[in-house]
Simulated scan of single mutants.
Amino acid sequence: MFSHVMVGTNDIERSKRFYDAVLAVLGAGEPVHNRNATGQNRLFYRHDGMSFCISEPINGERACGANGGTIGFKCSSPEQVQKFHDVAVAHGGTSIEQPPGLREGNLGPLYLAYVRDPDGNKLCALHRPASSRR
């Protein structure tokens, strides 16, 4: 359904350090650097046919996290969820909501961890056990 997700940053180098570490947990390599026609720096991380991008805001305003927005990253195991969380926190992210772990709900069991990146964007690491996929 999605071709890419892009979030804004106020410090492209700080965000690169954060996302290099966090997205490496999921298997993403070095990003492709791009400077658009109006001079904003952008980084494109590509993995499994998807792109996650960080960009200096094109409108010249400060970047801020979307209120109510969350970007979810699919993980292959509960251990990968925990590692995503721990690496994010070790690289300037903030753990939010409940501690990483199993959540039961009407969608079946999910292993979840929530963090905010250094610019305030809300990220979720999610693993859905095969027995609960619908």
Rank of each mutant, 00 (worst) to 15 (best):
F84C: 09
L107M: 11
G105Y: 00
R103F: 00
I12V: 08
M1R: 03
G68L: 01
F44H: 10
L26M: 15
P31S: 09
I54R: 12
L126I: 15
L23N: 06
V81C: 08
N41A: 15
K74G: 10
N67Y: 07
G60Y: 02
P57K: 03
T38M: 13
P57L: 07
I71H: 03
G60R: 01
S15P: 05
Q40C: 10
N34R: 05
V22K: 08
F18C: 05
F52Y: 04
P100A: 08
P118M: 01
G27V: 09
C124Y: 02
A21G: 12
Q82G: 02
K83D: 06
S131Q: 05
V81Q: 09
R17Y: 04
A28Q: 13
A113Q: 09
P118G: 02
L23V: 05
G92F: 04
Y45R: 06
R14N: 06
R134M: 09
L110Q: 09
Y19R: 12
R46A: 15
V22L: 14
A66P: 00
A88T: 10
K83E: 15
P118S: 01
F73A: 07
A66Q: 10
E13N: 04
R116H: 05
L26Y: 12
A24T: 15
G72E: 10
F2P: 10
L107N: 03
P118H: 02
G29K: 07
D20N: 15
E97H: 05
F18N: 02
D117Y: 04
V89G: 02
N10P: 02
G93A: 06
P118V: 01
S3F: 13
S95E: 13
C64M: 07
I58V: 14
E104M: 08
V81N: 13
Y111F: 08
A24Y: 12
H91F: 15
H85L: 07
V115D: 01
R62L: 02
G105P: 00
Y111V: 00
G69K: 00
F84D: 07
F84Y: 08
H85C: 14
P78K: 07
K74S: 14
N121H: 14
M6F: 03
K74M: 11
P118Q: 04
P109T: 04
G105S: 00
P129K: 01
F52H: 05
P78I: 01
C53F: 00
A130P: 10
R128H: 04
R103T: 02
G65W: 03
H85P: 05
I58L: 14
A24W: 10
S3E: 15
S95F: 04
L126D: 04
N106R: 08
F44Y: 11
M6K: 04
N36A: 03
G49K: 07
M6H: 03
N41Q: 15
V7N: 09
G39T: 08
D48S: 15
A28R: 12
L26W: 11
E97I: 00
T38A: 12
L26I: 14
L107H: 02
S15Y: 09
I96H: 05
E30T: 15
D86G: 13
S77L: 04
K122V: 02
R46W: 08
